[in-house]
């Protein structure tokens, strides 16, 4: 891929734990991606709007307050209404039993504590390559 991958990192809801989101933003930047860190206390509407404005390939959501089950699916839904190709991934304190429902709602992968920055960067690259291949078919 010639074009730099563009990633939006954002925290939906009222949760203020932003260590992980900031570390991931720095890590993906060092992995050669263009990262827009949107910050915290955002509504799903604001995040979807920014994703469109910034023309990103990936949206990364982080939530540690337990509100992920309402915030993540709502954000994916709003993103999809505008652009079907954007990859949406999530992270934070997410109980394992919630992950299948989140994936069904369109969250491509959930990265919990203990994930390495490489794992996230690799996942994004592979998923976007696959998207591109699928679109060519």
């Amino acid at each position: 891929m010639n074009k730099k991958i563009r990633v939006l990192i954002a925290k939906p809801g009222l949760d203020g734990h932003d260590r992980g989101a900031k570390v991931v933003a720095s890590g993906l930047r060092d992995a050669g991606m263009e990262v827009i860190y949107l910050g915290l206390r955002l509504t799903p509407e604001q995040i979807a709007e920014a994703a469109l404005q910034e023309d990103v390939d990936v949206v990364g959501l982080a939530c540690l307050s337990g509100a992920h089950m309402s915030l993540f699916p709502r954000t994916v839904e709003l993103v999809r209404q505008r652009d079907n190709d954007i990859l949406v991934i999530g992270g934070g304190i997410i109980p394992k039993k919630d992950i299948p429902a989140l994936k069904k709602a369109g969250i491509a992968e959930v990265f919990g504590p203990g994930t390495t920055l490489d794992e996230i960067a690799e996942f994004i690259k592979k998923a976007l390559e696959k998207n591109a291949d699928d679109n060519q078919d």
Partner: peptide
């Protein structure tokens, strides 16, 4: 809860899910 900490009542749109 976070809405109480950030000055929103539980029925505020930003409190949804929290």
């Amino acid at each position: 809860q976070l809405p109480t900490q950030e000055g929103y009542d539980s029925d505020h749109p930003l409190a949804a899910g929290e």
